[in-house]
Design a protein around this nucleic acid. Sequence first.
DNA 1: TGACACAATGCAATCGTTTGCATACCCTAC
DNA 2: GTAGGGTATGCAAACGATTGCATTGTGTCA
Lengths: 342, 342
Amino acid sequence: MKTRSNIKDIARLAGVHPSTVSRVLNPATRSMVSEALAVEVLRIADELGYRRNPLASGLRTRKTFTVGIIIPDLTNPVFPPIVRSAEQTLDGAGYIAILADSGSRERSEREIIENMRARDVDGLILATAMRRDPVVDTCIEQGIPIVLVNRTVSRHHVPAVVNDDELGIELALKHLVELGHEHIAYIGGPQSTSTGYGRYHALLENAEKLGLELDNELLINAPAFSETAGAETLNGLLDSGKAFTAVLTANDLLALGCYDALRARGLSCPEDISITGFNDMPYVDRMDPPLTTLHIPHDALGVKAAQLLLARIENPNAPIEELRLAPELIVRGSTARPTIAS
Amino acid sequence: MKTRSNIKDIARLAGVHPSTVSRVLNPATRSMVSEALAVEVLRIADELGYRRNPLASGLRTRKTFTVGIIIPDLTNPVFPPIVRSAEQTLDGAGYIAILADSGSRERSEREIIENMRARDVDGLILATAMRRDPVVDTCIEQGIPIVLVNRTVSRHHVPAVVNDDELGIELALKHLVELGHEHIAYIGGPQSTSTGYGRYHALLENAEKLGLELDNELLINAPAFSETAGAETLNGLLDSGKAFTAVLTANDLLALGCYDALRARGLSCPEDISITGFNDMPYVDRMDPPLTTLHIPHDALGVKAAQLLLARIENPNAPIEELRLAPELIVRGSTARPTIAS
DNA sequence: TGACACAATGCAATCGTTTGCATACCCTAC
DNA sequence: GTAGGGTATGCAAACGATTGCATTGTGTCA
């Protein structure tokens, strides 16, 4: 089994110095060497099936064509499309993606990033940001190009691709109001995340704008964006005895948790209670009932995040962009007019 | 911004040669250097927050603590749990995972693997194997440690962790028969994959074992494991005019496609036709109707695959294991007794 | 014809780490 | 007192590529 050929092999066959081969192989320096020789070197390289060793050149140049992608939980269906489209975009630019799932692991995110940094990644895509996030701070301090996706931070001005939460919440709220709901509950997410925080405040603002009076006790921010958190929160609301005919949730998983809580009590959706989600995760259109939710452009999130990162890698002083993509309300079977009985 | 410290920095501070530091930092060679010095060097290393540069050491040793994971489509819900658990297991052993989604991309899988090889990955986890797969052949020839997951190849004896398809199909078929179905259709997958091939043959064998007469024209292998392929195939079957009361599918996505075809024709499941899936993808328990399917241990698949790979990386001559994990029938709402009318 | 510019290539150091070999030292044994 | 055998460390060459600088050669122009 012959080992992979390297720049020296080519140099020997071409009768030139390895540095010349290097110059030929590098588009930026190709013009330094005579046309005829360049062609010959390329021919030999091709013949040998030469491939540059990114470890070696990365060691010298500090550029590895590697990007780290860190997500909180790959089994949350929002993330696969994002990761996939980001990876694809990176691949198209000659980069590879190191994936790390930071969730449910003893080792901290900081440790993951340190590891990636040790490997000289050219940049990071983070889907894990907290509103105040020391890890993000560190990256910025150390000048590691990063792009946040889905969530962002509140302190710095950081490149990010996020959803327009205000618009999303507005659409959902208007939808419920238009259906005739007057007593609307809200199940939000952790206030430590920009999505949890932003959607909650968007709700308050939009309610005011619509002249809608919301009962503060029906507005709960769940401790996690998960099914169990959604179920438990709705259970609490139902136990409170307060009347409401709809629940606006800040996330599809919370909404699915609500399905569970309702089912457990023999209540049905949307007959007894309407529910809206946020994200339009894959397959929620097939659920029982199909979920009315806010569609976010998953693929675009990943593509844009990758593009933004590539731009900043190529030019660290590129302007810091924050892209805010518009969600779209998808009305399905989980919302309906309130029944008169309620 | 001070750059990361390296072995030379430590050597200077400790007043020793870099090679000595290297020996201290490497567990395998630690014993070569005097206890006192070792302690001192470690102290300094710790103080500087030293981290070994895997690129540099990998260049020298050909060991990068990097593993490539290649899957056909991350948005197929079977894969995220596998990828996640594999990544987690690798991380625990100090490895990182490079993820590549080979689907829907112009560049071939071969190209992806070449790229990973150029980066000196220590091994590969492939979820993309075809039954006769030249890419796998190449890896074996070149001595790159690989482990196949979910699918395997027919030619070589390759480390793999797959499902027990025979058992799975047996359970599904028995279930339908016990419910009283006599006219059962089968929608399988591409015969170029071990799962498509294996499940089809498992069906034939189990039918024979049960003394069940299957109508050959009701046994179709779809060209892909996808919802559209499932829908189109079922449409074909329904158009044929042949009578059947149940469809056994080789994959959840095919089953979901069947849902679509039925719905489009105003037929309902399970009243008109029972349907079984295979894989128990996340959330199929929430669909309408909840899918009766074969649960496969997604997490275990990923963990085992990673473990198998690590074992082979550490010892390339380790015995070639093929793990065959047992699926479990999960009966939900998509199967029922056939109605007398049919 | 000589000076000079410029183009094309070679040389050697470098990135951070590892490792076979050489060396220096100490101890023991004869 | 010296040979022999460890033990602990240093030295220097790798790994595969890049790049500032030196060198060679060629042509141009006065």
